[in-house]
Design a protein around this nucleic acid. Structure first.
Lengths: 327, 327
DNA sequence: TTGTAGGCGTTATCAG
DNA sequence: CTGATAACGCCTACAA
């Protein structure tokens, strides 16, 4: 391993000068600095994080607690957060251990902050885990122990409903996972029923299309079943990206056109690459908003600035030709 | 932050004694040891990795390079490897950065070994990245720069074909992703054609069912198209778990029973929880084999033992009632 | 502008 | 068995 001492020797200066030069301190004459940097590169110098963080008490690293790799749910988020933090000079490290173990690890590693992905719908730890490092949580836990960022799913669906009603739709269906296994999915359902109730005085029976999961095939199957039963609707609000893809397939099979026969709005954190075959209107908090909120919060925590105990992000709607106004 | 010095003060011993006690050294009298350990717990002592690895040159940590969180492909593997390493006292850290950056990070962090998930089918870096830390690669790259563990997909499919032929099947179909986007999928296809060729002297036209992806719906669609065209087969070899699920749905729709009408063998690293609706015969290298091979290799590298430059794992077949012998 | 010295928390090597 | 003491690689006053 090559150390600053090696560089110092090679450059014929003292190693503290090397240290300064490498940190780009103004206390070193440009030519000396340049020479040192060159030598460092030639030698393939890698600063030793251990040594550095021992003295400086920080590691320029943030740890991400991610107990469920299996569910690729947050993959897009974490990728982006990783990039953003990198732009600020921080390195992101993930742990797929249990929350307690992961937080423990990150504490020992002296990361500068911890981002905890709250296993959506599950409840987190109920006693505040001992941590010297500030922790931010994405996704609300039953009992919020840490500053938390979350998106408002209920309002998102509600927004979709209101939008459709306001352009003349009356017969609106919601397709989603209604197994009640997942609290977050339940919120979407109630967003729908509440949204309808708010617009229609008289009680209308809610048209719910229950899917047995969140996969493409689930959406396909549920929608097909709905159509097979001879039911109709002028507009569908869909609970997730993949379900929507399934819905589209089913509609295609029945030669129903979007939006002529049915309008459609899909819940999602608006994805960077819109891979829908046809453009689809989307509701939700855009990924950019989520990620930069999280990144900002993390940086603030690192710099010991105040961070709100709870940040709830409000949805936006991106309407396009997948919605037809009825007169 | 509480250090061994704090503990020393509280226990009325020197801090070097504390260090020994905490490392469970035999050089400390049991009662003293016990007392020290107790105090450490009370104070919530967390050893400082930075300090430790600074002197001991190791961090009891292995880094995993995982540039593509998006594709949850290896989620099951990594979870298991994480557990196994933990049992050996190692902590696993993931980086989702680009390979170069990730390796760099892990070097600075002084991890004890690096596991690189080779983004299947893509080619890795072509010049050996400078690393003081030993690197193990899972999945063969174009030009293998590091010791590599991989599974033999070609032989797996071949094994399935041979098995079916040997129990009397002649009309065997293969369903898989034939878009040729992914080298690994291509290997499966050639495993099929080669397997057939080896059993049937006279050239038989290969029955290939092309799916346009690897999702459940892709399998469903492809199989349905096949059946709709009036084609038949007595046995299907499927290229992946999800495709197989789709195939089953399609067969159900056509009231074809497994195995009475069609036998089926699915490629897969045998999953821990068999979530198939009906039991399905599987070929592939069991996950346990893969993960413990990797874990062993990593531990060997850490202990500076020799590790073969290339380990290719051979498939196994788990036959069950999804295959019917024809007479 | 550069060099010297002290210390960060731990481990390891000696003396006691 | 226990206690000093010297590293480990780096940073940061402070001195030259």
């Amino acid at each position: 391993m090559v150390t600053i001492k090696d560089i110092a020797k090679a450059a014929g200066v003292s190693y503290s000068t090397v240290s300064k030069a490498l940190r780009d301190s103004p206390l070193v004459k440009p030519p000396t600095k340049k020479k040192i940097v060159n030598i460092a590169n030639e030698l393939g110098y890698q600063p030793n994080v251990a040594a550095r963080s021992l003295v400086s008490k920080k590691s320029d690293t943030v740890g991400v607690v991610w107990p469920t790799v299996e569910r690729a749910a947050h993959a897009a988020l974490i990728t982006k957060i990783n990039d953003q933090l990198e732009n600020h000079g921080y390195t992101t490290l993930l742990s797929i251990n249990k929350v307690e173990a992961a937080i423990n690890t990150f504490n020992r590693l002296q990361v500068d902050a911890i981002l905890m992905f709250n296993d959506q719908g599950q409840d987190g730890p109920d006693t505040p885990l001992p941590s010297n490092v500030p922790i931010l949580s994405y996704g609300i836990a039953k009992n919020p122990l840490y500053p938390t960022v979350d998106v408002n799913r209920r309002d998102a669906i509600k927004l979709a409903v209101h939008t459709l009603v306001d352009i003349g739709h009356k017969n609106i269906a919601f397709i989603g996972d209604m197994s009640q296994r997942d609290q977050l999915q339940d919120e979407k359902v109630s967003g729908f029923t509440e949204g309808m109730k708010e617009r229609f005085q008289e009680a209308t029976a809610d048209v719910l299309i229950p899917a047995s999961g969140l996969e493409l095939y689930d959406g396909y199957l549920a929608m097909k079943k709905f159509l097979q039963a001879g039911k109709t609707t002028t507009a569908v609000v869909s609970g997730s990206y993949d379900l929507t893809r399934g819905v589209i397939r089913a509609l295609n099979e029945y030669n129903l056109s979007i939006p002529k026969d049915v309008s459609i709005i899909s819940y999602d954190n608006i994805p960077q690459t819109n891979t829908f075959e046809v453009p689809i209107s989307l509701v939700g908090v855009p990924n950019d908003v989520i990620t930069s909120t999280i990144t900002d919060a993390l940086l603030n925590m690192i710099n010991k600035k105040q961070v709100p105990q709870s940040i709830v992000l409000e949805p936006e709607i991106k309407l396009n030709e997948s919605c037809l106004a009825l007169e």
